[in-house]
């Protein structure tokens, strides 16, 4: 699965060094096993343009950690921008077992509800037909000066999710949200992995 390059840092100084090596602009997030909803808690700082901005953001984030968060770090990654976002993942459904999902991402994702599901495992043509099933097909074409989405890459993400879901019985769900489309390629910039109780991390 294509992920954005990211560095885990344990101090504002390390964060600045990581940003200088990755390049600007970049993002900083507070990271920890028990932190799930970063955006809602204001733990994501976007579009940091300078070493000073990264240092200040990292200091803020470390001080925003609560005792309940346990061990935390600051994650530094490049600021990826694209006007299109997808969401992909799998979940464990009471009726159907593990099911793989693809959908339109972004802030309106839930209101629009343009998603497609398939049961595990994905077979021949299943990933392709999930993409074809989405109603917002225009997003997959050339869009606002950006190239068309490489569907094969999205197919690979879905098949990789299917493989993980099948092989890792300890993983209940995976959320790749968002998958930002950069130059037509999907890149995961955040992932939430839910494990069965008692599973080793």
């Amino acid at each position: 699965m294509p992920f954005a390059e990211e560095r885990i840092t344990s101090s504002p100084e390390e964060a600045i060094a990581a940003a200088e090596s990755i390049g600007f602009p970049c993002v900083a997030k507070l990271n920890g096993d028990r932190i799930a909803h970063k955006t809602e808690r204001g733990l994501v700082r976007l579009n940091l343009q300078t070493p000073e901005a990264v240092g200040a953001a990292a200091r803020d984030l470390f001080s925003a950690a609560t005792p309940e968060d346990g061990e935390v770090s600051v994650l530094v990654a490049p600021m990826l921008s694209g006007s299109r976002e997808l969401i992909a993942g799998f979940l464990t459904d009471e009726q159907f077992g593990k099911v793989v999902m693809i959908g339109l991402g972004g802030v309106l994702a839930e209101a629009i509800g343009d998603v497609a599901f398939r049961l595990l495992p994905l077979g021949a043509g299943d990933a392709e037909s999930m993409i074809d099933e989405l109603k917002t097909q225009a997003l997959f074409e050339e869009f606002r000066g950006e190239p068309a989405i490489n569907k094969e890459s999205v197919v690979n993400v879905l098949n990789a999710l299917s493989k993980v879901a099948q092989e890792e019985s300890n993983v209940l769900s995976v959320d790749l949200n968002p998958l930002i489309i950069v130059n037509g390629e999907p890149i995961a910039v955040d992932a939430l992995v839910e494990l069965t109780e008692g599973a080793s991390r």
Partner: peptide, 15 residues
């Protein structure tokens, strides 16, 4: 009987 999530059902039927 229990009803199931419609979107998953829809995907399962297509599959």
């Amino acid at each position: 009987a229990l009803a199931t999530d419609d979107r998953i059902f829809d995907g399962a039927v297509r599959q």
